[in-house]
Every structure is written in structure tokens, then in C-alpha cells.
Amino acid sequence: MKDKTIDYILRTTWLTVQKMYNEEAAKFESTMATGFTLLSIDPEKGTPSTALGPKMGMEATSLSRILKTMETRGLIERHPNPEDGRGVIITLTEFGREKRAYSKEKVLTFNEAIKSQVSGEKLKHFYEVSEIINDMVSNKKIYNQTDSSLT
């Protein structure tokens, strides 16, 4: 892997993980995106629709399609936000809670499988490097940097 770029490794690894999750979700007529959304909604109180996109790192247009599908399938309900008359709270239905539990089980199984093969020290470094990459990209420290030593 020494000749592969960091972004290449990130992308191909994520696509492989995404494919695995989608194959697993397809057994239950679902998708990874639906599972991720279920896991991002507070199962007790629900989640304001305006907070869901940023929490998931998704654009509103992509999220609205997923939510519409989930509502049609009976996984979620939309309720007026009592604290903001213009807002909407997304809550899980009983069926949505069942599918959320299933999604959570699959994520935990994945995590345990990786932890059984990768040392705690290596995982710690993986998390550290991931945080640095997220910080650099989020704070525009790569292409929009102000530090002239990086150009």
C-alpha cells in the first residue's frame, strides 16, 4: 500500500465498508443510509430535523429523500417541534426502534470484529489520525490555508 495516497485508502476502505453494510441491510429491504439515520435519531425524545443533517454530515436534500422513504416505510414520524413552531421533530415508530436495534447490533458486531484483529494501540493511532484529517478538512487547513509554509 506504500504507493497509494491517503485519500485513496480512505475512499476504498469506506466503499468496502459501505458495500458490506448495504449487503447486510438489503437482507431486510433496507440500506446503510437508513440504518445510519435510525442510529442518529434519539430513540426517546426524537431529533429536530434541522439538527439531523449536521449530526450525520449530510446535506438537507439528501436527507429529506431518506426521511421521506423512512416515513413511507413506517420507520419514523414527523411532529411539530413544541419549542419552535416552524420546526419538526423526527421520532422513531415502534418498527423504527426495532430496525434501529438491528442496525446498532450490526455496527457493534463490526466494531468488535475489528477490535479482535487490531491492537488497542493501533486503533488509538487510527482514531488520532482520523481526528487530525477531520480537523484539517473541516477547518480548511489544506486548500484554503493561511499558513504560507504549507503552500
Rank of each mutant, 00 (worst) to 15 (best):
L15N: 15
K122H: 09
P80W: 08
F126Q: 00
K106L: 06
T151A: 08
K19L: 12
T12A: 05
Y127F: 12
I9E: 09
E23S: 10
S130P: 03
F110Y: 09
F28S: 14
S49R: 15
I89P: 03
E23N: 13
K106V: 09
G57L: 02
S149C: 00
V17H: 11
T37H: 07
S40K: 08
K106N: 04
F126L: 14
S148H: 04
Y21S: 04
R100N: 08
A60Q: 06
T5I: 12
E44R: 03
L39Q: 06
N111P: 02
P43E: 14
T93M: 07
E59A: 13
W14C: 12
T91F: 10
S148Y: 11
R100L: 08
P80R: 11
L38Y: 12
S148N: 12
P80N: 06
L150R: 13
S148I: 08
L38I: 04
K68W: 14
Y102S: 03
V17A: 10
M32F: 13
F28R: 15
G120E: 04
L63M: 12
Y127H: 10
T34E: 15
S62Q: 10
S49Y: 07
I6Y: 03
D42H: 12
E24Y: 02
I66R: 06
T12G: 02
F95M: 12
K122S: 04
M58A: 05
E23Y: 05
T109C: 03
M70C: 04
D147T: 00
T47H: 06
S130I: 01
E59M: 05
G53F: 11
W14N: 10
T34L: 11
T151K: 04
N134W: 08
L10F: 13
I66S: 13
G35Q: 15
M32Y: 15
D147H: 06
L63S: 06
L38T: 09
A51L: 08
A101L: 14
F110C: 01
D3G: 12
R11N: 03
F126K: 03
A60H: 07
T31W: 06
V88P: 03
E29V: 08
R100A: 07
L75N: 09
S138W: 07
K2Q: 04
N22K: 05
T146N: 07
K55L: 05
N139K: 12
E128G: 01
Y8H: 03
M32Q: 10
F36A: 12
T69S: 12
L75V: 04
R97F: 12
K99N: 13
R73D: 14
